[in-house]
Design a protein around this nucleic acid. Structure first.
Lengths: 156, 156
DNA sequence: TATTGTTATACTCTATAACTATA
DNA sequence: TATAGTTATAGAGTATAACAATA
């Protein structure tokens, strides 16, 4: 469409900082989600994979808490990761109700490439800012996250 | 869960500025979406309502372009707004294929209250920053939006 | 009884594609 | 033929709730 005749956002929308945060967030995350999709993964699957690969003990309940999702939803995410051969589930010896999650050899092999994609996406979008600007942006966002106690790892 | 034992994000995630943008965005937009839900509206419906109330000529195709959605999806959003009595559709005199969208009296009455909710949500989250910090954050985000030509009004 | 995890079900949102009416 | 809009269909994603196994 001719940019001159394209509909512009209603003025009230642009006055909100939330508008600009969401605009940038959607573009950055949308581009990343599309790159992940080419690898056959959703963002939720990628986050879960990272958490499981972190080293510490990870269970479905812990993932659900960390990612702000229900256990039912996490269970499906884990089904997909397992069907793709990236993770394994094993019953805990200490408590037979608990499932311990771990990367398979294939999962360990896949993670670095995915990290490279994530790094590249972040660099592509935020490389437009110089080091000072990036540090300032990070500090402001962390301040907001801290003040409002934002803890869930964003997934969608 | 005990914060000391809660799963923390994998270090690689927090290194990305995209992580922090998404974290803040999800909290701000999530809180707003829940407030809208109490009014029986989705975010997409609220955005469309604002665009239609802006004054200029608005059509389904124009909304679809502005909001980055397909015409089919927009059609459903408009169905909902119309069924709630907030908008009207009228065939254009100049081109009978075109539908001109307008707020009903009820829609005009509803908009200010919704704007108050949106203003309050933004103030709640970003009021934690002083005027200088808010201006800095806005400038950085607008710079990113400009450089990467981010135009779609964020909806989800 | 409480908790972990899975499964069954339903709902929301959106895209794709087929279709109608008009140009 | 091309365009505006709607409708039909399907898929992804997630929540709720019922369920099974274990504590």
């Amino acid at each position: 469409m001719d940019p001159a005749t394209a509909i512009q956002p209603a003025p009230v929308l642009e006055t909100h900082l939330g508008y600009w945060v969401r605009l940038v967030s959607n573009h950055v995350s949308g581009a990343f989600a599309r790159e992940l999709q080419e690898q056959g993964l959703s963002v939720a699957e990628w986050v879960a994979l990272n958490q499981i690969g972190k080293g510490a003990t990870v269970t479905p309940a812990g993932l659900a808490d960390a990612m702000g999702m229900t256990r039912g939803a996490i269970s499906k995410v884990l089904d997909k990761l397992q069907s793709k051969g990236l993770i394994s589930r094993a019953t805990s010896q200490e408590d037979n109700r608990v499932q311990l999650l771990a990367l398979t050899r294939q999962g360990k092999r896949a993670l670095p490439e995915l990290t490279t994609i994530a790094d590249g996406n972040d660099e592509y979008f935020f490389g437009a800012l110089d080091a000072n600007e990036r540090a300032t942006l990070r500090a402001l966002l962390k301040k907001l996250a801290n003040i409002h106690q934002m803890h869930n790892i964003p997934v969608d």
